[in-house]
Design a protein around this nucleic acid. Structure first.
Lengths: 215, 215
DNA sequence: TCAAAGTTTTGACAATTGTCCTTTACCGGG
DNA sequence: CCCGGTAAAGGACAATTGTCAAAACTTTGA
């Protein structure tokens, strides 16, 4: 057995039921693969990492983070699709980010500063995720420096991605931004209404629709 | 003497001239203050940190990072003002970021991935900065985990700032974005031409000028 | 299977922004 | 002190995008 069996008992981790062990074995591999693109882990180290996460399921349309509420978790999406958005004074929704398989998602400002949410996170499909609290994330970084290295690397890459998006807003037409979205989120067009794509691009549905013919 | 004298000799650091020691003592305090907002350092630890940086001076209009060149350093600005920008196919300049005192600046994508620059960094005023290479940054993080913690915290805050700017592009008018810029870069308006403010906001000088009356 | 709800497309018009151009003001170097 | 280069402001017009409304098309659930 790959992980040596008896997960959680013989290494001083919290005792957990067998089904949780199974979930970690099966879905955890996605997370492990992402981490190991940056730092390598032994089986024992990875089990230790996983012990800091909780497995969560959400239904389509379920709100995972409500505006004004404290934000207790950051999520690694295993399957499904979420969005991060804010509704402005005129009732218009602006989409900050989508999160599909392999993506991390939360209201990062509220999570990182232990403040109340200014963004909403909800599900566009039934979604499974691993949740980690800020306490566990910090603990994990102290106990396993590799993981701090991983998070620094990942956050830097995410920063670069946002900088690219800003450059798109500065220089590119809505049409170019549309293409950029396709490369960042492959397959997304088939999974969400175009009105949401428009909210992400910062144009109205009508404008996006008119673009459609030329793109 | 606060730092105990004999900097660089009795702690196994590279031997350096006295004037460099003075520079570090005087200007280093800005950097130390920023780091200590997040993690605390002993005098010895801070001296050790500083040994990983080089002091650099640039003249107004000097190009610090040329497009297409490798990017060897990340800079912490002590005094002066730089900008990060890209010129598009039509010859229009788009400003990604300004960097004044206390800011970090580089072409982060090229620096982090050891790739060639896609952005240009140049000076709007005579500028002094501390430069750190990627090798030294990684070495520093290995040797002093506090510094990896500092960089992770800082990068996360920078990510949050970019996310705010994106939300401004999505929801706010150019006027709101103008106000947002004033809070992010206090005093900038008195230091750069308005055409550059326009490049940062993603509008033309003329549009910004028209806004002027209503703002 | 059908009806209701939600989504996309299209058109007409208004508002905003970009482009081009001229005028005025300001600053630094001979 | 003046001159030349840079920057700012404003007018006229064009292009783009937003708004509102109606019609065509999909999806969902009973």
């Amino acid at each position: 057995m790959l992980h040596g069996g008896g997960f959680g008992r013989d290494r001083g981790l919290p005792a957990v039921g067998t089904w949780i062990w199974l979930v970690r074995r099966i879905f955890g591999d996605m997370l492990r693969q992402q981490i190991e693109q940056i730092v390598s882990l032994t089986d024992e180290e990875f089990d230790f990492v996983m012990a800091h996460f909780q497995h969560r399921r959400f239904k389509k349309r379920q709100i995972v983070i409500h505006e004004e509420d404290p934000v207790l978790y950051e999520y690694f999406v295993i399957s499904g699709l979420m969005k991060v958005s804010r509704v402005d004074g005129d009732g218009k929704e602006h989409i900050v980010q989508f999160a599909m398989e392999d993506w991390w998602v939360t209201d990062i400002q509220a999570f990182h500063r232990r403040a109340k949410a200014t963004l909403m996170v909800d599900c566009l499909e039934d979604t499974e995720a691993f949740a980690i609290s800020l306490e566990n994330k910090e603990k994990l970084c102290r106990e396993l420096q590799k993981m701090e290295r991983f998070f620094l690397f990942k956050t830097t890459e995410d920063y670069i991605a946002l900088q690219k998006r800003i450059l798109c807003f500065l220089s590119a037409s809505a049409g170019d931004r549309y293409h950029s979205l396709i490369t960042v989120y492959p397959g997304l067009l088939q999974r969400v209404p175009k009105s949401m794509i428009a909210s992400y691009l910062g144009v109205t549905r009508e404008t996006l629709s008119r673009l459609g013919s030329h793109v």
